[in-house]
């Protein structure tokens, strides 16, 4: 019987499927974003437009940072990856808080539009992405496109 390798020394080489998934979600977010921004604009006016755009940037940036952290640290060690994900969660929440706190009293911010866009974009993009994720041994990231 062979011993299980220690997660502190095992590292993962090769392609990073989470970056591929995250990039695809950002692409879809940029496609759907203008519709959501326009909707917020109709309901909350110009403040809704700017708040919704700001929230969209925050959510897409959050996805990109999360995937980047996993991809970079997985090449070093699985133990580091685990630590980076857990501390990354705290750091990303902190960045999100700071980003909203700094603009909370600005005239161009509409809090309901900001909050609604954060939740709808985050959950909506994730649910939409599930349709395109293969997560199989042959295709660990996205499903192969029909043209290939």
């Amino acid at each position: 019987m062979t011993a299980t390798p220690s997660p502190m020394v095992t590292r993962l080489e090769g392609a990073a499927p989470e970056v591929e998934v995250s990039r695809d979600m950002i692409r879809r977010g940029l496609i759907v974003g203008p519709v959501l921004i326009a909707l917020c604009g109709v309901i909350w006016g110009m403040a809704g437009v700017s708040s919704s755009a700001y929230a969209l940037v925050l959510v897409l940036g959050n996805f990109a940072i999360a995937a980047g952290l996993i991809a970079i640290t997985a090449r070093i060690s699985l133990g580091l990856m685990m630590g980076a994900i857990l501390f990354g969660y705290l750091i990303r929440l902190g960045i999100l808080f700071l980003a909203v706190y700094l603009v909370k009293d600005a005239g161009w911010i509409s809090r309901p539009a900001l909050g609604l866009t954060i939740i709808v974009t985050h959950l909506g993009l994730l649910a939409w992405e599930l349709k395109y994720v293969a997560a199989s041994l042959a295709h660990p990231g996205l499903k192969p496109s029909r043209s290939h």
């Binding site: 090769g14 990303r92 900001l114 609604l116 994730l126 992405e129 994720v133």
Partner: peptide, 28 residues
Amino acid sequence: AGMVRTTMFLGIAFTEALALIGFVVFIL
């Protein structure tokens, strides 16, 4: 590992949505 990483990433993102809902309540 690739398959697990993809599932892990999506799992983390879905779980994080709960914290974001709390954050939005905090904003509002």
